[in-house]
């Protein structure tokens, strides 16, 4: 059996990925230089930088889900969340830092979906890092033009009489969709409600499924 057909595959049968050991780009070199200067001049430390990276990695859509579940069970909290998202998330112990959060509510008339056509603005302080597709040119350009087609590709077919409201995060605000609480979840405790609130529900490309 000729062996050379398989030379580009690992023993597990998957293709080898190229190593990322090419020369540094201009901006990678610049980042290293600035970081080293900040550390050498005592402005920050490597420990502080690592702590910041770890803090970023600790955030996840589970944080946003807790905020949504609280809003579902506590109408007064929901009112505060819609009026000032950053202040309300702080009540639950989530730190907005400089993030200015606007929460938009799905109703029986409106379905909200969030995009950033200019770059990849995303409520990172509540949901963590955005998914790769959120940053693609396809999602960014198509969501403002044919949102219903994009949503159907995510498996979400909306009722004809719902208005789709796209939010383009063009400047200082960051957006979180407050989904509708699904029928059949009456009496559920907050923790169980939070489990059906996925990342995609809070971007607006999905709705919670209680099944």
């Amino acid at each position: 059996m000729p062996h050379d057909h398989h030379d580009h595959l690992s023993p597990s049968g998957h293709p080898y990925r190229p190593d990322n050991d090419e020369a540094l780009s201009y901006w990678q070199t610049m980042e290293i230089a600035v970081r080293e200067l900040l550390v050498e001049n005592g402005i920050t430390t490597l420990a502080e930088i690592n702590e910041q990276i770890e803090a970023m990695d600790r955030r996840s859509p589970a944080d946003g889900a807790k905020v949504v579940a609280r809003a579902w069970v506590d109408p007064a909290f929901k009112a505060r969340l819609l009026a000032d998202g950053s202040a309300a998330m702080k009540e639950l112990g989530f730190e907005p830092d400089f993030m200015k959060l606007v929460v938009v509510e799905n109703t029986d008339e409106v379905h909200n979906v969030v995009v950033c056509t200019l770059c990849s603005c995303y409520p990172r302080n509540l949901l963590g890092l955005p998914p790769d597709w959120y940053k693609t040119r396809a999602y960014r350009s198509r969501t403002v033009k044919e949102p219903r087609t994009v949503l159907s590709e995510f498996g979400l077919e909306l009722a004809h009489d719902l208005r789709v409201q796209v939010h383009d995060s063009t400047a200082d605000m960051r957006y979180l969709v407050l989904p509708r609480r699904p029928d059949g979840t009456e009496g559920w405790p907050e923790e169980k409600l939070a489990q059906i609130v996925t990342r995609d529900c809070m971007i607006g490309v999905a709705v919670p499924n209680p099944a």
């Binding site: 033009k145 044919e146 208005r163 789709v164 409201q165 796209v166 939010h167 383009d168 063009t170 400047a171």
Partner: peptide, 19 residues
């Protein structure tokens, strides 16, 4: 308003932040 005759659903809306 944004896409004219190419809009698949003319009454759907886009919100954006503008200075």
């Amino acid at each position: 308003e944004v896409w004219g005759g190419k809009a698949s659903r003319p009454d759907d809306t886009i919100d954006a932040e503008i200075f």
